[in-house]
Design a protein around this nucleic acid. Structure first.
Lengths: 196, 196, 196, 196
DNA sequence: ACAGCCGGGACGTCCCGTTGAT
DNA sequence: ATCAACGGGACGTCCCGGCTGT
C-alpha cells in the first residue's frame, strides 16, 4: 500500500533499474540483437524469470519509460487558451528539459540503442504516435475545438516523426548537441505554421 | 542476365510476386506475427529455402516494393529550379497516381495489412524515411544547394510520417477516398510552409 | 481441529470454494490450458501461494469434489445381499439425485467445463475410475465375495466410462434432460447383464 | 515422390523410430515427467528442433501410433451383416493380434508408460473414445442401422474404458498374460449382451 | 541446381517450490 | 499465517543458415 515508502516497493524499483541499466550497457556494447536476455539477467543478478516479470519482452527494456505523468503535468501547466500546437511544443520541450537534468545518460543510451536497431526505432515511433494522438484528441475535445480527424492524425504523425528524428540525430552524435534545442528547432521547423 | 526479357527472369519475377501475394493475404487474415514463413511458403507453393532466396527476412516481404524507379523518374520530370519541397510533393503525388491506375487493389491490400499490424506500420515509416532521405540528399547535392543536414532529416521524417498516416487513413476506410487527394492534402498541411 | 464448527475451519472452506468457483468460471470462459493459475488466484482474491496451499496442482481444482462421503452413505443404505452391480447403480443414481437437488447449477457448470476441455474429460474419467475401484474393492472384501481382480477393474472402468459419457451428453445439451435418468439408462445399457 | 523407396523417406522413418525408441526407454527408466525432451533428443542423436518436427508434443511420442489403417482394414474384413458389436470385437482383437506379432515390445513399453503416467492414461482413453465413436458412427450409417446417439456414445465409452483397462492391467503385470486374450475377455464381459 | 532436412539458438510462457517480510 | 518476490527449469515456437540427396 505504501506509495513510495515501503522497503518492498523501493527494492522493486531498484531491481527494475538494475535490469534496465545493465541491459542498456550490454546492448550498447555488443548490439541489441547480439545480446541475449539471459546475459542481461545474469549481469543484473536476477533470473530470467524475473527479467520477464519486470519487462514483458526484450524490446520493452529499451522502450519503457515513466515519463508520461511528467508530460501530462507539463500539459496542465499551460494556459487553457493557448494554441494547441504551442501547448504541445512547450510541454514536449519542458518534459525533455526535466529528463535531461536527471536521466541524461540513460536517455542518451536508450536513444542510441534505438537509433541502431531498426526494430526498436520502428516501435518507438509507433508508440509515440498513438500516445500523442490520444492526448491531442483529448485536448481538442476539452477545448471544444473542432479539428478534422484526418488533419489531426496527419499533423500528429508529422510532429512525432520530426521529434523522433531529432532525437535520433542527437544520439548519433553522442549527445554533443543540446537535445532540448534540437527538438525545439525541429518542432518549429515542422509545426511553425501548422494551425491546430 | 537479360534485364527484362529472358524466360528465366520472368519466372523469377512471377515467383517473387506469388510469394508476396500469398504472404500479404495470410498476414491480413491472421496477423503478421501469427503467420509463419512456412505457411507462406506452402501457400505460394515453394519451399522455405526458396522463400529465403527471394526475401532475406520475413519482414522484407512486406516492405519491399518496386516503386523506386517510378518515383525517380517523376523527380526527373520536375523543373530543375523548383523548390525542393514542391518537387517532392509533386513527385510523390504523381507516383501515387500512377500506382493507383495499375495496382490499386494490391496497394490497398498492402496498406490495409500494414494498418492492422503495428509492427509493420512502424517498419513502413522507417523504410520510407531512410529511402527518401537518400534521395533528397542526392537532389540537394546535385543542385549544389546547402541545406543543413539536421533540417533535411527532420523535414523528411515529418513528411513521410504525414504521408504514411494519410495512407493508413485511406486504407482504414477501405479506400473510399482518393488516396492521391488525401496525400496531397497531407503534404500541403505539413509541408506547405516548410522551406527546404 | 474442530471438524465443521470453528470459524477458522469455515473460512478455509469458503476460500477453497471461492478458488474453485472462480477457476471453473475462468476455465469455462477461456479454456483450461489458456487460463493461468495466477489469473485464477487473482479472481479469487488470494495469492498464488494460497492457491497452491489449497490445491496441490492446477488440475486438482477441477478434479476435486466432496461427494465421496455422500456416495459412501448411499452404499450403506443398500441391503447387504444385493448384487454388487445393482448396489452400485442405485448408489450412483441416488447420489446424483441428491446432488441435483442442491448443487445442480454448479454441477452443470463443472461438467460443461469438462465437456469442453478434452484434457479434463480424460482426467475426470481417470479419477473416478480409480476412486470407484477402491470402493468396490472394499465392498467385495467386506462381503467375502471373490471376484477376479481383472474383471473388477474392467467392469469398473466401463461403468465409469458410461457414466462420464452420460454426464457429458447431459452437459452438452445444457442440462435439458434429467441427468439422473440419463445415467440410469446408461448403467442399464452397459451394466444390465454384467455379473459382478 | 517415392512412397517407400527413396533414401530420404527411409531415413525419416528411421529417425522417427529412433526417437520413439529412445524416448520409451528413457521414460521407462526414469519416469515420464523426470525425463526432458532434451535428454531424449540427445539419446536419439538429433536436435531438439528435430524432435519437435517429428512429434508436436512430448506426449505424442508415447501416444502416436500408426495402427489406424490396420484397424480399418480389419473392419473391412468382417461380413457386412454381422452385428456391430461383434464386428468391433473381432476387429479390435485381430488388430491387437497383428500388433503383438511385430511390435510386442514397443507396445508393452508404451502401455506400461501410459499405466504409470496419469496424464498419458487420460489422453489415451480420450483419443480412443473419440476415434472409436467416429468409426462406429460410420459403420452404423453404412448399415442403415438406427441407433440412438446417446446409446451409441455410452456404449462406445464403456467399451473403450474396458479395453483400456485391460491393456493397463496387462502392462502392469509386465505382459505375462496374453493381451489378446485379456482384451477379448474384457469385451465379452462388457459387451457380451449389449445390442448395438 | 534446387528442394527438403536438420541444427542451433533465442524468446516467451507457465508451473511450482522456497524464502523473507508483515 | 499469509503474501509477494524470486529462482529454476521445462516446453514449445519460430527464424534462418548449412548440408545433402536427387
Amino acid at each position: 500500500m505504501a506509495l513510495s515508502g515501503g522497503l518492498r516497493e523501493r527494492k522493486k524499483v531498484k531491481t527494475r533499474r538494475a535490469i534496465q541499466r545493465e541491459a542498456l550497457r550490454l546492448f550498447l556494447d555488443r548490439g541489441y540483437e547480439q545480446t541475449t536476455v539471459e546475459q542481461v539477467a545474469e549481469a543484473a543478478e536476477v533470473s530470467v524469470s524475473t527479467f520477464f516479470r519486470y519487462f514483458a519482452t526484450k524490446e520493452d527494456v529499451v522502450l519503457t519509460d515513466d515519463y508520461d505523468p511528467l508530460f501530462l503535468a507539463e500539459l496542465d501547466n499551460r494556459p487553457a487558451d493557448e494554441a494547441l500546437i504551442g501547448t504541445l511544443r512547450h510541454a514536449i520541450v519542458s518534459t525533455l528539459r526535466a529528463i535531461m537534468e536527471h536521466d541524461r545518460q540513460e536517455m542518451l543510451a536508450r536513444i542510441q540503442l534505438i537509433s541502431r536497431a531498426p526494430d526498436l526505432q520502428a516501435r518507438y515511433w509507433q508508440e509515440h504516435r498513438t500516445g500523442l494522438r490520444r492526448i491531442v484528441e483529448q485536448l481538442r475535445f476539452r477545448s471544444g475545438s473542432r479539428i478534422d480527424e484526418f488533419d489531426l492524425r496527419v499533423v500528429t504523425a508529422a510532429l512525432i516523426g520530426a521529434v523522433t528524428e531529432a532525437e535520433l540525430f542527437w544520439a548519433e552524435n553522442d549527445g554533443i548537441d543540446s537535445l532540448v534545442d534540437l527538438v525545439d528547432r525541429a518542432l518549429q521547423q515542422v509545426g511553425g505554421f501548422v494551425r491546430l
